[in-house]
């Protein structure tokens, strides 16, 4: 039973990690957190479902379209709910992104409906691998692989490509980055689009394991945010690792104590660790100069 908990935990954890990577990317580039991420994830799942099941598209076309929609939506969030406030020097982007997330959830509510729907079985969920007497769906192997793969891909992008390094440069010194001719606004837009796609991927991968509903994003987004905070929102590997740890820990608590204790334990851990390390487990404090 514990091993299946670990497997579930790894799967869920890498999805938390993916969403948390989205938080990391936007925070790293613009010092803002997109609280509409949970909603974006839901949108990815809902769109993939609608296109492939309701409209009958093949998965191979439904998925990219859903991802592009997530990217476009996140760009809109940046334009409308982040940029005007950052420009003003105000912190209201926090509430503004929350507001947009709520709005999106409501739109999904009255278009998609209230009832959660299950994705029809597909190749990945009907085929199993048997390890040590345990049946593991292909999908359950795919999810952590995709999660880690994306983290690796992002890492490679940042460390080994010209544009990736330019993005990092913006994080490290926005003023000097501007002097290099880097268009900081465009970089921010790109970062938001990227984080939106990450959320979309998470939603699409998770959907077959659970159900698709208009409310699936909120709690997931909050937990992913907790993961990002725990890992130290400035560190890509930190959030991915924190995601895995969180997912496995959650699965363990559910297996041993029952699902209702899960939230109490995990959120208490979040508060406790923030008390001890106010910048997250892997984060670093900013420099104060007077």
């Amino acid at each position: 039973m514990l091993t299946s908990a670990v497997i579930t935990g790894l799967g869920l954890g890498s999805m938390y990690g993916l969403l948390a990577l989205g938080f990391h990317v936007t925070y790293a580039v613009s010092n803002t957190v997109n609280f509409a991420q949970g909603g974006t994830m839901m949108m990815g799942a809902v769109l993939a479902f609608t296109l492939s099941v309701t409209a009958g598209w093949p998965l191979l076309s439904a998925v990219p379209v859903a991802l592009v929609a997530c990217a476009l939506w996140s760009i809109l969030v940046e334009r409308v709910a982040v940029r005007p406030f950052v420009r003003r020097g105000s912190n209201s982007w926090l509430m503004a992104t929350v507001a947009l997330g709520i709005a999106l959830e409501n739109v999904a509510l009255f278009t998609f409906g209230r009832d959660p729907r299950g994705m029809p079985p597909n190749y990945l969920t009907t085929h199993f691998v048997v390890i040590g007497g345990l049946k593991i769906q292909y999908l359950q192997i795919l999810i952590p692989l995709v999660g880690l793969g994306l983290a690796l891909g992002l890492h490679a992008f940042f460390q080994h490509t010209r544009h990736g390094k330019a993005l990092l440069a913006v994080v490290q010194n926005a003023g000097a980055a501007r002097l290099m001719g880097i268009d900081v606004e465009r970089v921010t837009t790109l970062a938001f689009a990227l984080s939106g796609m990450l959320a979309g991927v998470a939603g699409i991968l998770v959907a077959p394991l659970f159900t698709v509903s208009s409310t699936m994003g909120t709690l997931f987004g909050i937990k992913a945010f907790a993961v990002a905070i725990l890992g130290g929102i400035g560190s890509a590997w930190g959030v991915v690792l924190a995601g895995l740890v969180y997912g496995v820990a959650e699965a363990f608590v559910t297996a041993c104590l029952g699902s209702t204790y899960t939230q109490i334990v995990s959120f208490s851990l979040v508060i406790a660790s923030l008390t001890v390390m106010p910048n997250g487990l892997f984060g670093r404090a900013g420099v104060r100069k007077v």
Partner: peptide, 22 residues
């Protein structure tokens, strides 16, 4: 009081959930 900005938001959210689940 030890945290700021999004970290503070997280602490308050977590607290809300703990009380509800409690």
């Amino acid at each position: 009081l030890r945290v700021r900005g999004p970290y503070l938001a997280m602490v308050t959210i977590a607290f809300g959930f703990i009380v509800e689940q409690g």
